[in-house]
Design a binder for these strands. Structure first.
Lengths: 137, 137
DNA sequence: TCTTGAACCTATAGTCGCTAGAGGGATTAG
DNA sequence: CTAATCCCTCTAGCGACTATAGGTTCAAGA
């Protein structure tokens, strides 16, 4: 039997976050002590570690809910889980692509700025005048 | 004289967003018509285009506030603006780095999954067992 | 001039995944 | 038995908007 604090220390998930996950339906409502405090078992610890891991990999809460639901039906084909992971991978790649374009444009703007005063600062001028940009954004 | 809708169409900033920027102090409170509707001039349009452009480049609102303040003092050295842009570039690069690690790990997990049922799905197993991961995250 | 419909107004709540705080009760070590 | 630490619920805040409700003003056509 673990208290919520024990669970928190063992999974590195903060106490309020555990309560939040309960509210979001990612973990089922815990048993309570006589004094109404949450008491957890080993299965809860594993479940929470799963959630933590998925969050670290950037899955959002609805995706995690689906993954948990799938993991309770070992007989189903795993195409569902694969699709969730692939979709997420696609989203991560899209974000990287966007950020890379941003990086490129910012690099260009920063490196072009050799002025001394704000008046001829390339950073400010580029923001004021879209025509100074290389790509659309 | 532009109405808020004119301004919106010309800058591609949505009407509620323009009001939000006014609330956040990025644009000064507009003059009003007799019937209390906002009326803008060319200077407001340029200011809003500047903001839009900075947002597209990922600057957050406090940074934009600073950039606007700087752009009104053309005599100041432009090191302040440069630093804001460089800081932002650094943040963008850090995000890219994080996402690339995620991408790598997700690729690995997805590509290892050749199971047919959830029971031996590598996606689910990797989430359940952190030891299957290559890097810490 | 009147009417209609589009555009405008304010104020409030919702998004996401937590995090922080207030104000109180439970547990446990000494 | 007491004090320190933990735990409880409830509410509000973050950032940058977006959506909705309920009402007012404007502009163009009849």
């Amino acid at each position: 039997m673990y208290s919520i604090g024990d669970l928190s220390r063992r999974t590195s998930v903060k106490v309020p976050t555990i309560r939040y996950y309960e509210q979001m339906g990612l973990i089922s409502a815990a048993h309570r002590s006589e004094g109404n405090q949450r008491r957890y078992e080993k299965a809860d610890l594993e479940r929470l570690a799963f959630i933590r891991h998925a969050r670290d990999l950037g899955f959002d809460i609805p995706a995690i809910r689906e993954l948990i639901a799938l993991s309770r039906h070992p007989d189903l084909p795993c195409a569902g889980a694969d699709r969730i992971a692939e979709d997420h991978l696609g989203a991560v790649r899209a974000k990287i692509e966007k950020l890379r374009k941003l990086e490129h444009e910012l690099e260009r703007i920063v490196s072009h700025c050799c002025g001394h005063s704000v008046e001829d600062c390339y950073v400010i001028r580029a923001l004021s005048d879209h025509a100074l940009c290389e790509a659309e954004h």
